[in-house]
Every structure is written in structure tokens, then in C-alpha cells.
Amino acid sequence: MRNLGIFFIRYYSFFLFLFLEVIAFSMLFNSNNYQSASFFNSSNKISGKIFSISSNVESFINLSIVNDSLSIENARLKNQVLSERYSNKINTGVYTDTSMSFQQYTYIQAKVINNTILKRNNYLTLNRGRIHGIRKNMGVICGDGIVGIVKDVSDHYCSVISFLHKDARISAQLNSSKDFGSLVWDGLNPKIASLRDIPTHVKVKIGDSITTTGFSSIFPENVMVGKVNSVSQKNGDNFFEVSINLSTNFSTLRYVYVVSDILADEKVKIEGGRIND
């Protein structure tokens, strides 16, 4: 027994090392379902405060770029307002009952207070949290396109898995033919993604736009994703790999919208508890 004690004391640094590594690895592998570990996340109060301060400084520098992007988005939305259009439609006397439809998606506006684009796995921190109605696994979009999926939520902040992440797979379709595949990021250029699993009989046009499919409960249908840049096929593969120019400019991201789907829980339940992306 005494020898064992001496053994532990002599090699205590090795045992301490093992102990600390076990803690660290368990944080890594349990990150998705381990509730108490979520304090060590950029959505906690301290890091939220620090990122708020640093983003205030940065947003002052980027003010003109942000203003431009917001005014472009305003103009685009104004163009969609029905009263701006001349309509050829004549009222034929069929009445639509408004109680037959309701708004499925609502949008919560949020400000990006921390964002990285240069790593293999990127994350954002937003200044909205549980008290604003944000829940885990909600989608995040911006005026130009998709941004990511909410990962952790605290009272006032949330951290978001950016689309620029090794595990991000988003179901997206070609706008002209409605053929869909999964969109992934290969880790080298934050402006380019690739759309996989498009069968080779499909005619892919360069410049065709790519939008979300709405198959998941995360993003609504027809959110802009990007435009086709080039098409390639690996030897012996039955699928095209389509290279996409992303429409979201992740490097200047400042204001985003968190998508809240009121039917999300119902859809996840009927699909057997899986959350598709």
C-alpha cells in the first residue's frame, strides 16, 4: 500500500494529465447533449458581454458597409410589396377565407456580436437569447441568404453553428429543375460551397440559383443560397458535384434573422424525433 502511494506521488503529473484530458474529451464528445457543459460556450454571460463591447467598436468601423447592405435589402423587400404592382387580375367573386391560413414562420432580428470565418469549424454569437424566444436548432438567415443553426442558448445570447462548419449539411435545390441535394462546405473558401448528390441526368445551368427546399423544420422554403459556379463529376461517380458561389457574405455579416417555425415540434415528432438540416 505504501509503495502504491509512492508510485502515485512520483508520477502524479501523469495521472493529473490523464484526469484533465478525460474531462476535456468528455466535454468534446458530450457537447450535444450535456447540459451542464453548455456554460463553457460563447453564449454565456461573460463572453457575451466581452463580445458585445468588441463588436460595438467594430460595427462603428463597418457602419457604411452595413448601411449599404440594409438599404439594398429594404429596396428588395419594397419591390415585393403587392401595392407596388399593377395587377391584371379581375375579381371573379371567389372569396378566400383568411382563417384557413396562418403565418408559419416568424423572424427574430438579431445582431452578430462575434463571428469567425477562417477556421474549419466556425461559430457566431448573437445578442438574442431565451427571453426573446430563441430555442436550440432554429435556423438563422440574413438578407442575402442562409447563415447557420442555433447551437446553444442563454438568457440574452445564443451561439450559432455557422454554415461554414464541417457538420453543416443543408438541403438545397436547383431553382430551374427543383432537383435537390445536400449543401456542404469543404473548408477552404468562405465564399464557395458544394452541392452534392445531384444525379447526372439533370441539366445544371451555370448561374442558376440555388434555394433551400424547406424539407427541414429549420429553414423556410426558397431562401436564397447562392448561384451555380461550375459542375464537375468524379470518375465513376453517379452524381455531380456542383460548386456554388454563396450569396451570403459571411465576412461582413452584421444583422441576421432567427427563423422560428411554429410547426417545428409537430414536424420533428411525426418524423420520429430526428432533426434534419
Binding site: 494529465f17 463553457f40 460563447s42
Partner: peptide, 19 residues
Amino acid sequence: DTFSSTDGMHTIACTFIAF
């Protein structure tokens, strides 16, 4: 890790080089 949402990756690498 806390600030970059990386779930223990930096902790693993740092503890190893300390060892």
C-alpha cells in the same frame, strides 16, 4: 474554448503540450 464555442479542443491540445 469557452469564447470560441469549440467544446474542449483547445483544452485537449493545451494540456498535452503542458505535459
